[in-house]
C-alpha cells in the first residue's frame, strides 16, 4: 500500500449512514460496489457516457464512475437498491419498466431507473421529448429506448394519480 493516508468518507446511502476509510482516489462507483456491496449501479464505459453507474446524490443524478468517493463525503445517496416502495413492492418506475418491457439485459436498468426517478421528481409530467432529453445521459444497447419512454410515462401517470391507484388496490 502507498504512503498516502486513507481518508474517512461518511455518506447516507438509501437511508443508512455508513463510514469507510478509503484511498483518496477511490471512485464513488467502486466505493458503492466494493466497499458497500451495492452492486446495482454498474460500470459500462468508465468515461461518463453510458450512465450505468448513475446514482442520486443530494437530489441530483450523478455518474458515480466520474466522481471520487471523497467528493460525496457527507452526502445523501440513493441507489437502485433504495428505489422500491417502503413495503418492498416495486415502485411505480420499477413496475413501469416491467409492464412496458423497458429492459432486456438489465445492465443499464439500475442507472436508467435511478435517473428517471430524479427526472420525475423535477418534472412530474414530462413530454416524450423531455423524457428523451432527460435520459440522454444513459445508454441502452438493447431496447431502442421506445419502451423505456413508455415505462417512464407509465410511472408518471401512476404517480400523478395516487387516489385512483389506492382505490384500485
Amino acid at each position: 500500500m502507498s504512503d498516502i493516508e486513507q481518508i474517512p468518507v461518511t455518506v447516507t446511502v438509501n437511508g443508512k449512514k455508513v463510514q469507510r476509510f478509503v484511498e483518496p482516489r477511490t471512485l464513488l462507483i467502486h466505493f458503492l460496489r466494493e466497499e458497500l456491496n451495492l452492486t446495482g449501479p454498474h460500470i459500462g464505459c468508465e468515461t461518463s457516457h453510458c450512465g450505468a453507474c448513475t446514482v442520486e446524490m443530494n437530489g441530483m443524478s450523478v455518474k458515480s464512475c466520474t466522481m471520487f468517493a471523497a467528493q460525496a463525503n457527507g452526502a445523501e445517496l440513493t441507489t437502485i437498491e433504495g428505489m422500491a416502495n417502503p413495503d418492498g413492492t416495486l415502485s411505480a418506475l420499477q413496475e413501469g419498466f416491467r409492464q412496458m418491457h423497458g429492459l432486456q439485459c438489465g445492465f443499464c436498468t439500475p442507472g436508467m431507473i435511478t435517473r428517471a426517478h430524479t427526472l420525475l421528481k423535477e418534472n412530474p409530467n414530462p413530454t416524450e421529448e423531455e423524457i428523451r432529453m432527460g435520459i440522454a445521459g444513459n445508454l441502452c444497447r438493447c431496447t431502442g429506448y421506445q419502451n423505456i419512454v413508455k415505462a417512464i410515462q407509465y410511472a408518471a401517470e401512476k404517480l400523478n394519480q395516487p387516489e385512483t391507484q389506492e382505490a384500485a388496490e
Partner: peptide, 9 residues
C-alpha cells in the same frame, strides 16, 4: 452541454 447528469456537477 453534455447530458443531464453531467450538467448537475
Amino acid at each position: 452541454i453534455a447530458d443531464p447528469q453531467i450538467r448537475y456537477v
